[in-house]
Design a protein around this nucleic acid. Sequence first.
DNA 1: GTCTATAGGGGGATAGAC
DNA 2: GTCTATCCCCCTATAGAC
Lengths: 210, 210
Amino acid sequence: MITPSPSRRRGRPVDERARAERRAHILAAARRRFLSSGFHGASTADISREAGVSVANLYQYFASKEELVLAMVEEDLQSDLAFFADLFRGADFLACVEAALAALAHAGRERRELGLRAEIFAEALRNPRVHEALATSQERLVAALSERVSAAQARGEIALADGMTARDVGILLFALADGIYSAGGLDLLDGARAARRTRLLLGRALAPGR
Amino acid sequence: MITPSPSRRRGRPVDERARAERRAHILAAARRRFLSSGFHGASTADISREAGVSVANLYQYFASKEELVLAMVEEDLQSDLAFFADLFRGADFLACVEAALAALAHAGRERRELGLRAEIFAEALRNPRVHEALATSQERLVAALSERVSAAQARGEIALADGMTARDVGILLFALADGIYSAGGLDLLDGARAARRTRLLLGRALAPGR
DNA sequence: GTCTATAGGGGGATAGAC
DNA sequence: GTCTATCCCCCTATAGAC
């Protein structure tokens, strides 16, 4: 913040591109370590070892461990938005919902990211900055889902009950996605089956012309 | 396990009742500390201070920190079963669902337990013993919910789509409850409104005679 | 810019006195 | 059964050499 812009600094100019790349490299290493040991279980030494740099160097790119989490929340948001954008490209809204929920349950079962998300969630409840980042992220995801609901409604594909808004359905879909993703991680449910059944239920609830 | 039964031991007999009481006392203290600092943030020193005993004494009642978590999962299961049993006493199934989801969203907003649950969940994904305890717990909750669905179906209050089982609906309700509870903690949704809208949606999906 | 070395502070768990 | 004192480990973050 106080740092002058590169052009006004003396000496060798900073290679902003190299900085961004190394930063991403360290963040990816942190993600891998947090994934297998949890946020509090992975030390800065673990992370820097994984990234192949020194601990002190890590602190040249992230002011604290907290910064790593905040950067990850932002990454997750972009990844989630892409996930939904990809799955909701099809025309059939309910088929898209089914595919999305099945993919989520499957992702939960593989636990590649589930533990990390739980860790971030828990951290959000104690750390105001993480909380704000995560709440903003969730709000944007709900908005994206609501848009898809609106579009399907405009196409006449689904109909909402009196007093239901597209946002209401978006929130419910978000909550359901969250729950199914989590339940998958505990081997509680068969993801494909859960998604198919969800579609049946939602189909009866949202299909128009009845 | 190797300890002989009290009756076969020499000297003053063990006061099993006093032991159980102190154990519960320490567990309650651990819950309070875990609640405000998280599982990894609360030290055994914090917990024993909260309970008013020494650290060494805590270890007379719990072999490790892990044992505290396992005991808490068991307590939570009993509490959750009681929660649903209490809320599903009414005759109107959909009204019961609405009340339960509203209560969950409200509980999530208050964050009295949400962080602890997230912590336990994350721990379950790394610790096999915690994982098994939590999976068993979730299975029992789903079974309890499924029973309520079956009962409502038997009364003719709701009807399932072809191929849907009561258990399918129970799982979906569980996942939805989980998601709504979590979303409440991030101030994402208005719990009462979400519950009412959920009822509208489920009402159209499950109501019979159409 | 990157490193080694270390400060400064907990952490979980236990030995042994009472 | 309960305690005080302590072991030995690891933590985040930084100072200062190169």
